[in-house]
Structure formats: C-alpha cells, structure tokens
Write a protein that binds this DNA or RNA. Structure first.
Lengths: 198, 198
DNA sequence: GTCTATACACCGATAGAC
DNA sequence: GTCTATCGGTGTATAGAC
C-alpha cells in the first residue's frame, strides 16, 4: 500500500466506519470489518488509531460536526407558521426515507455514547448540535411567517428535536408514511402554537 | 445446583438478561454475563436455550408483553383534555426518571431488533403494543374530558407514541427536567388539538 | 509506514463426567 | 440435569519482517 499521511488514514477509516455502522449496525462495526471496508490491513488501523474506542469517538464527533440542517423550512409565500413547519418536517421525513440507515446509525451512536460515562458528553454534544440547527430553522420559519416565539427559541428547539426523534423512531419501526405524516402534522401544530403573530 | 424445571430456568435467565441489558447495555449482555447474574453455569444456559439469539428474542417478547400503561391519565375532576394529557405525560416522565436504565434498554432492544430482518417483527410488535396502550390512555382521557377524537384514535395513538419516544431520548441525553416538561406540555397541546369538545 | 503473522482475551456453544 | 473443562471462532491489539 502507498504511504498515506496518518490524518488521511484516520479520515478514510472514519468514513469506512460510518458506512459499516450504517449498513450493519455498531455491534458489527469491528476493526476487521472497518479495515476491510477501507481496503486496509489491520495493522494500519492501529497505526492511525490507538484503539477502536478512539475511532468510534472520532466517528461520533465527525458525524455531529457534519450534521446539516435537517428540518429545512420550505419558504413558499403566503404560508402560515404551521404550514412552514409542517413542510419542513415533511422534508425531514423525505430525508429519512432516502437514507434510513444513516439516521438509524445516528441513533445507535447516541445510545452507544449514553452507555459509558466518559462518552456521555458526546451524546450531549450531538443533541446540542441538533438544538442549534433547530433554533436556526425555527428562526427562519418565524421570520417568514411574521411570528414571534413566545418561549425562548432554544426551548422551542428542544421540543422540535424531541418531535423529530419520535418521528424518526416511528417511521424506522413501522415504515408507515401516513402515520409519520400524521406525526409531522401534529408536531407542526404544537410548535406553531408556541408562537404569536406579530 | 438443584433441579429446576426448564421453564423456570428460562424465565430466570430472561429476568437476569433484562437486568444485565438495563445495567450495562445489550452489547455487554453476553451469555457469560447473564448466567453470572442468574447464578447459573454456562451449560445450564444452553440446556434451557438453544442459543443466545433465542434468549434475546424471548426477552423482547417478555418485556413487550409486560409493558404496562406508561402514560396514565391522572383524572382530576374539572381538568380539560390538555391538562389530563399533560399530567399523564408528566407521570411518564417520573416513571422514566425512576428507572432510566429500563427505558434505555427498551430503546436498545428496539434498535437491535431493527438490525436483522428476521427480528424486525419483534420491534413492530413492540410498537403495536405501545400503540394499544396509547389508545387506551387516549380513550380514558377523552371520556373524562367529554371530548371526541377527530381522527381515528389509533392515528392519534401513533402521535402519542412518537412524542413519548422523543421525550424519552431528550431526557436520557440531557437529563434536563425543565426541557422535558416543556416537551410534555407541547405534546399535550398538540394532542388536545386533535379532539373536539362534545 | 505498511505488511503478514500472531498473541491473547473472550465469545457462543458443546463434550463428557457425575 | 447439572456441572467443569474445553472447542472453535472472532475480537482487539501487537511483533517483527520488509
């Protein structure tokens, strides 16, 4: 194999790990499975990382940092806040349907981090990131609908994140689009009620 | 060790497995950890079960069958539907706080089942059970508040289950009671809006 | 730096004595 | 039926040749 800087090996392994976790679950993301996915030898793994745990930690940090706006408000003129939020949640649902394995991987990584005290902060950081993205979506939506959040927008964001998680789990288990859309509609209702017209 | 009927061994092992999964996570619930928890030898395990997978399947079936009313409406006279639902969700939150490991175990078992096609039906059954319990709660609440669900109660139940999942994940990660209560309040709002006064 | 070969722990599962 | 002892396999991690 060619000589590759350690930093490139690290990111190649992280990407391979993400693919393995998405496709087969974190329990199956062994060092052997990851190096096979990356086309490397086992020794190269331990040249780039001290341990599997170190890789998983970096994997979580990477996917969290990369996480993009999930609930993107679709700004069509004339829509009220409830409609904007519902269309945003439906967009998220499309995103989930397009790559369910990725969202399942995110959930598994959260649970994994929750299981050890030293990794718990990674889960907290993950949800802090989710909350930041939610704040951004909520501000855009309120601006477009000429509304004002009655509670601090950070508090509303927690609610949006929770609703999104519920939507995700429900769809992953049942794969029932109609049920998921009903959840999205109810969630949009609830959130819209947390704002006043301006 | 005394001679114990196979059925008793099986249930003792299932109970031990639940404790191990709750305390340390499903990844750590090895046959050795489970028999140590149950005070048995490794061979006794394989006398009672053909395989670890068979035990896990029975564990999931057992906890699902045992799952009790989680969101119990607290019927105080004079409360409207929104208040009844919110108090029910707050009761669930207390239940979650009293035994977070158990709820985390339920989530992990769901994810575990989702990862293999032959076990996916176990997750579906788990959520069907949740939905049944939710239907029951919603019917009691609507009756007490003299309200009528506008949509089929089964559909509203899906929304309640999703909201409960979101509440669970949020609290497990952040352990933030105030944020969780805000989620409960918003969820109760959304659900109450899905009914009409009678 | 990268490889093959291997150490060593632990996994699920079984053999065979009692 | 229940045990101890052990098998074969796989996991993480490392040694040592190149």
């Amino acid at each position: 194999m060619a000589r590759i800087p350690a930093s490139e090996r690290r990111s190649a392994l992280v990407e391979a790990a993400l693919r393995v976790v998405s496709r087969r679950g974190i329990a199956q993301a062994t060092t052997r499975a990851i190096v096979a996915e990356a086309g490397m030898s086992l020794a190269s793994f331990h040249y780039a990382f001290d341990s599997r745990d170190e890789l998983i930690d970096e994997l979580i940090a990477t996917v969290v940092a990369r996480e993009q706006q999930a609930v993107i408000p679709d700004l069509v003129p004339g829509q009220d806040l409830r409609q904007i939020l519902e269309s945003g949640l439906l967009r998220y649902l499309e995103h989930l349907k397009a790559d369910p394995d990725h969202e399942q991987a995110m959930l598994e990584l959260t649970q994994y981090a929750l299981r050890s005290p030293e990794r718990h902060p990674l889960a907290v950081a993950q949800y802090r990131r989710y909350a930041e993205l939610a704040v951004h979506s909520l501000e855009i939506a309120a601006e477009a609908a000429a509304a004002t959040w009655r509670a601090p927008v950070e508090e509303v964001a927690h609610v949006l994140v929770a609703f999104t998680d519920g939507l995700t789990l429900t769809w992953l288990v049942d794969r029932d689009d109609a049920a998921a859309r009903a959840v999205a509609r109810a969630a949009a209702d609830a959130l819209a009620r947390m704002a006043d017209d301006r």
